[in-house]
């Protein structure tokens, strides 16, 4: 089994410092929709300049380098225990190199571990697959947007949200309204319907790895993604909550089986600094995307 530590450090560097092209393009398009000279347009300009500077200087786009969330796909026979150790080592090295802020604090005392090590930190999920390659997806999810995520148990009487797609639409728009600009709009929504509470939130975050514009294969869900996106933008919250045309850049959802008794809708909000990248290791060859 190879030592992937250095390759993982590079994955972390790229994720923290180089905003993916689909996000940058979406921000450019959003900029054109805002009134010239408005605070909203000014905010988008700042985001775009910052994006270029971070990439050129290899510095974190945002100082909140978030919870590192690793989704690891590995071939039969690999040791997940050893992979986890390599990931943790890479996170420590990336923290020393200032690609990551020391971001893990004791839940009660608040004491900072100093190197992003901690209990159940970073987040790592393993998935064995049949391919003869290791693929690591990494997302850095900051606290501002994580704090505005929401989970609803349907039916929800105040929102008149029943156990159907119309109910999902209602609670999703409620979540965006409650978030205002606090999640660093314009953001991306990952929505999961079903599951238990824990699985539902995890699945909503997995939606955020999809490229912008990717639609659910189910035409009804695809249509709802479009509807929620359009209506969220009608709310007028705008970039950073300054008021404006663009509040979300995309909405991506999927469903999972649930108990007959439970109907959870989980909304994960990702900020404009939507840092997610992948690394594939096949033999000695490492590619990043």
């Amino acid at each position: 089994m190879q030592d992937l530590t250095q390759a993982l450090v590079e994955l972390i560097r790229r994720t923290s410092t180089d905003l993916p092209a689909d996000m940058e393009l979406a921000l450019r398009e959003a900029r054109e929709r805002e009134a010239a000279g408005s605070a909203a347009q000014g905010a988008l300009d700042t985001m775009l300049v910052n994006t270029e500077m971070s990439r050129a200087k290899s510095r974190p786009i945002c100082q909140d380098t978030g919870t590192p969330i690793f989704e690891v796909h590995y071939p039969v026979g690999w040791s997940t225990r050893k992979l986890a150790a390599q990931i943790k080592q890479a996170v420590t090295i990336a923290t020393e190199k200032s690609y990551l802020r020391p971001n893990a604090v004791d839940a009660i005392s608040g004491d900072n571990s100093g190197d992003n090590s901690g209990v159940e930190f970073p987040t790592i999920h393993f998935h064995e697959w049949d391919e003869d390659a290791v693929k690591v997806d990494l997302m850095l999810k900051g606290g501002g947007c994580e704090n505005v995520g929401a989970q609803y148990s349907l039916p929800n009487a105040p929102l008149k949200a029943g156990r159907d797609l119309e109910g999902v639409r209602r609670v999703a728009l409620d979540a965006v309204t409650r978030a205002q600009g606090q999640g660093c709009a314009p953001g991306v929504l990952g929505i999961a319907v079903g599951g238990d509470r824990g699985a539902s939130y995890a699945f909503s975050k997995q939606q955020l790895f999809r490229p912008l514009g990717d639609r659910n294969p189910d035409p009804e869900l695809a249509a709802l993604e479009e509807t929620i996106k359009a209506q969220a933008n009608e709310l007028g919250i705008g970039p950073m909550g300054f008021g404006g045309e663009t509040t979300v850049l995309d909405v991506q959802m999927d469903t999972m089986h649930r108990l007959p008794a439970s109907f959870f809708v989980s909304v994960s909000y990702m900020c404009w600094a939507n840092r997610r990248r992948s690394m594939t290791v096949r033999g000695d060859e490492v590619t990043y995307s």
């Binding site: 300049v49 910052n50 974190p60 900072n112 950073m240």
Partner: peptide
């Protein structure tokens, strides 16, 4: 502007001092 970490850091021309670093963390 939230998330504009690099751009704003460029406007910090000097770190004069830091207080409570050990107790509160970075």
């Amino acid at each position: 502007v939230g998330g504009a970490g690099t751009l704003i850091a460029e406007r910090v021309v000097e770190v004069e001092d830091v207080h409570k670093l050990k107790e509160f963390g970075v």
